[in-house]
Design a protein around this nucleic acid. Structure first.
Lengths: 257, 257
DNA sequence: CGAGACTTTGAGATCACTCAAGTCGAGTGG
DNA sequence: CCACTCGACTTGAGTGATCTCAAAGTCTCG
């Protein structure tokens, strides 16, 4: 139920103030890496303050500009991406609820890629100073963020293997397994299914395929009883087979375990 | 003349003790990012102590094992790579002279990929403690290493674009431009040429192509007067055209500039 | 109900792959 | 010094995966 369907629905979203189960996805994610104290959680919850709804297909950071502050995704799908001069786009990574991106942006000069929303997103911008204070005062949080970064790097390596060596069906299965696992970690998946609020064109630009071929591959996976993707929701009908096809093993998403 | 041709020749290599021009490649690389004091340089030179020659195709860190210490490449080509259960291999990154890899390996639990030599290499292993001391006592060096890491990440993003969106000839050109630029930075390239001590099969596993297709693409680039690769040495005969074909811009290799 | 974005389908073209054979070159042993 | 071996490179021919182009179908939202 968590993905922002439209602006009105999302306006009602409220994180972690009264109900124990509606922790911010950032906290849920980091708790998979470390044990957070009450102070840690409080500090993290404050990051969500001032979150704003952002339309689909909106840039959060532009390629070539100075990176100013970090971006925290609270709901919806965003991504890092790069455009070629030919107009081709390659998506480099997905930013899902709970992902805090460009923690060390300040070090970097100009961005060498862009960050943008795919669906409507609930997003908080976090200033360099806020972040520095957080990292200094909550060392456990700092450690968790470092581990999250390592997971991000491992994910990039998996994507290289995906693009370099796997067939269309394998690539797509691998991506679905990864997204499902990551969304499960923040409580946004159940029953081997999750929201997938992106277009087939987005998938194509992620997997290095044409959108036509994405469509046909999707049909193939469905006809084999493996995967179903209708509306904006994804269901892995036969998780063991999908994992086997993709050679997916979730270990890389949990470094230091 | 810097690449290790064979074991006897390499045994004579001696870094930065007497001659000002034979600085360790690590120092040359980091000086592209920051200004190093004499103490910084001395500390860095000590890392090269105890370097050993390693045969081609030898693992330096195995996939799935605990990462113990960091690896500093002083000469030769090494890489990060991953094997699929099908036997396919994907090379994830090249480790060239001056590259210090897995600085934060200690954080990580088990390696999610392997590191191995492609050619004969001169390699120093650096313990976690040595590294920690260095980072604590030479903050400038620590900063340079962080910048080097950012460049590594940017490189991985470029590779994703390469594998996802570029044709065989474009991919290969892009890789050549990148390697040339990186080797230039450590004084191992001249005249738009450099050593490239790897096989066509290695190239294939880097570029996500078959070795047969690598061979044919190489011939195409040569017949177009762009690139020559014979023996183990590479020459970009028409650098502007190769760069244009590859859409290569070296900015990503120099963050914060 | 109309417009625009997204998805689906068909058909032909192309890029890259596989398999298999043959060549080349460096190193080895007789 | 030659013959042999092994790994790397090259070549040809056929195959298959994926792409492009173009048109039609569907859904959503105003």
């Amino acid at each position: 139920m968590s993905h922002v369907q439209n602006i009105k629905a999302a306006s009602a979203v409220c994180y972690g103030r009264h109900e124990p189960d509606t922790r911010s996805p950032l906290i849920r994610k980091l708790e998979a890496f470390v044990f957070l104290s009450r102070q840690d959680r409080t500090a993290l919850e404050q990051l969500s303050a001032g979150a704003r709804l952002v339309e689909p297909r909106t840039d959060l950071q532009r390629d070539g500009e100075m990176a100013t502050d970090a971006v925290l995704v609270l709901d919806g799908f965003a991504c890092r991406y790069k455009h070629r001069v030919t107009g081709d786009r390659q998506i480099l990574a997905y930013l899902l609820p709970g992902d805090l991106c460009d923690v060390d942006a300040p070090h970097l000069g100009r961005m060498d890629h862009a960050v943008g929303t795919l669906s409507t997103c609930l997003v908080a911008r976090i200033s360099r100073e806020t972040l520095a204070t957080l990292m200094a005062q909550q060392p456990t949080v700092a450690r968790a963020l470092r581990l999250a970064k390592l997971a991000e790097e491992a994910t990039a390596r998996e994507w290289l293997v995906n693009l370099g060596t796997r067939s269309a069906a394998e690539r797509m299965s691998h991506l679905f397994c990864e997204l499902l696992t990551r969304l499960e970690a923040v409580g946004l998946a159940e029953d081997d299914g999750c929201k997938l609020p992106i277009t087939q064109l987005d998938l194509a630009d992620t997997l290095g395929l044409s959108s036509v071929h994405v469509n046909r591959t999707l049909q193939e996976l469905r006809s084999r009883g493996l995967v179903e993707l209708r509306g904006r929701s994804l269901k892995l009908r036969d998780l063991p087979s999908v994992r086997a096809l993709a050679e997916f093993s979730p270990a890389y998403l949990r470094p230091a375990h």
